[in-house]
Design a protein around this nucleic acid. Structure first.
Length: 478
RNA sequence: GCUGGGAUGGUAGAGUGGUCAAAUACAUCAGACUGUAAAUCUGACGCCCUUGCGGCUACGUAGGUUCAAAUCCUACUCCCAGCA
């Protein structure tokens, strides 16, 4: 891969397209990526439960890691000292780091669905006041154990309820123009991440693709909030770009470090901007135009699946945006998806995807397959509706119906799990909490998404994308 | 054989007169999960009924006391510990 020397780093080559679907190659410091591509998520420098070599064998060309988590632990300096992320985790292929912007949402503002008008986010935000209140409550709780002999009843009364209440409404993160102030989910310590800081951390981590620091508003939010947030994200992007230029300049000045071959410096990294704008057409278009104007090596679309969005809404958002995107830049839809998502969005011109689902579902006992839940014994149990549609679906391997199912997870799948193990065996592993079960399902799920991208890529090259994608769509649309 | 302790829902184990169909955990059966605070979370879990401050059957067995018993009394069965 590294051999594609005819391409410059950061160059994206659109090789073929069929309808809106595109097949291309993106050159990074650690080799080329063939798109469309699915990128497994390895937040803390590990695709959970999987040895990198296994991730590679499942077909992964590139994986993700997260700035926020690695900044908190073990720290960007340490990873840099260890030779950068690639060396640290022994993944010699491309890596993309997310900026930590999403955590503002997932750990803070978007923690609860925000529908009530007591939502601080929607009303100008009195975060500090609430935080003080919260600290007071926490303090009270901490003191209690020593003196709890005297009044047990206190626990069930007002105080506990107050804690719940405050936990419920307080955003853990406070967003300002400067950046985001938040509490570590690990130890509660206070931190601030700014666009500059995010880029600095990502440079130390040394991924091949780094992401702009953005804000990802919860869904649904008001138009006003989406707009405000989007505009702030745009301003943050300019600061990210400036910071990156600064770091590139610095790194080119200093030959001080004897960087190992695979350790990236600032100028090796490709910065992607992120389109926001939420569920509003005009905002999405406005954001798209703004991001495109920055002429970055790649364009990402964020905030598409933050809550209960219907697939239709997600598709709408993409359709609003893509007409504004240049064909010569890779397009990355952040946080998506499922098999049907990949099919639909590749059809709509997306090149890159990442999603925690294949690994999270895998760890939690679910897998994707094109087969009905059939097995041998149909509907053995009580009412098992046996919702068989023939279409692809997500299935729980722990379900009793798989106890004696000798079949692979998915007939004809050539992942290392399906080639060797039965549903009955994996069912057993899950029932007995054997970690191998999580690994086997994660491998299958990752492999499945990747193989969908490969099949579609192939069909784009062969100009029969419509037929192939339509076929897949029928299989996976449930 | 004697003495003492004990028998509770699939399992372990709370509960010692009413608010107990019975805490809790595990097991079981399902569901959820989309830029990972997730090997997590949620629900069901005696039987019946769509529901419910619903009906029925339940705390070793059989009787009894009481308005009311898993909880008190009697006998029996079995288990455990110590002593013979």
């Amino acid at each position: 891969m590294r051999g594609m020397t005819n391409m410059k780093k950061g160059e994206y080559k659109l090789i073929a397209s069929d309808g809106n679907a595109r097949a291309g190659v993106l050159q990074t410091a650690h080799g080329a990526i063939e798109t469309p591509v699915f990128m497994p998520v390895g937040t803390k420098a590990s695709v959970k439960s999987l040895d990198p070599s296994v991730v590679k064998r499942a077909g992964s060309q590139i994986i993700l890691a997260n700035t926020y988590h690695l900044y908190l632990s073990p720290g960007a300096d340490l990873i840099s000292k260890m030779g950068g992320l690639h060396n640290f985790m022994h993944w010699e292929n491309p890596i993309l780091t997310d900026s930590g912007g999403f955590q503002v949402f997932s750990l803070g503002a978007g923690k609860k669905s925000r529908s009530s008008k007591s939502d601080p986010l929607r009303q100008g935000y009195e975060g500090q006041e609430i935080r003080n209140l919260k600290q007071g409550v926490i303090l009270a709780n901490e003191v209690r154990p020593e003196s709890n002999k005297q009044d047990e009843s206190l626990k069930d009364s007002g105080q506990a309820r107050m804690t719940d209440y405050v936990n419920d409404i307080i955003p853990e993160a406070k967003i300002t123009e400067e950046g985001v102030e938040f509490r570590s989910h690990r130890d509660g310590s206070l931190h601030t991440i700014t666009p500059e800081k995010s880029i600095e951390i990502q440079t130390k981590l040394g991924a091949d693709i780094i992401m702009a620091f953005d804000e990802c508003p919860p869904y649904p939010s008001t138009r006003e909030y989406y707009k405000e947030s989007m505009e702030r994200t745009h301003r943050w992007l300019l600061r990210c770009i400036a910071e990156k230029a600064e770091l590139e300049h610095l790194s080119s000045l200093s030959d001080l470090r004897n960087l190992s071959y695979s350790q990236n410096t600032a100028k090796d990294q490709l910065l992607f901007g992120i389109i926001q704008g939420g569920m509003f057409n005009d905002l999405r278009q406005e954001s798209a135009k703004f991001i495109v104007k920055q002429n970055l090596p790649g364009i990402a679309i964020g905030g598409v699946a933050n809550g209960g969005e219907s697939r239709e809404l997600m598709m709408n958002q993409i359709e609003w945006i893509t007409p504004h995107l240049p064909s010569e830049k890779p397009r990355y839809l952040m946080g998506i998806g499922t098999p049907i998502d990949l099919i639909e969005f590749i059809s709509r011109g997306i090149d890159m995807f990442d999603c925690v689902l294949p690994t999270r579902l895998g760890r939690n006992g679910a897998f994707w397959t094109v087969e009905g839940a059939g097995g041998r014994q149909q509907g053995a149990g009580s009412g098992a509706p046996a919702r068989q549609t023939g279409a692809g679906k997500r299935i729980q391997i722990k379900n009793a119906q798989f106890t004696e199912d000798p079949n692979p997870l998915m007939q004809g799948c050539d992942c290392s799990t399906c080639k060797r193990f039965s549903r009955a065996y994996i069912h057993h592993l899950f029932i007995e909490d054997e970690p191998l079960g999580m690994q086997l399902l994660s491998i299958h799920n990752i492999h499945l998404l990747i193989s969908i991208t490969k099949v579609l890529r192939e069909s784009i090259l062969n100009k029969n994308f419509t037929a192939v994608s339509q076929n897949l769509r029928q299989i996976w649309l449930s």
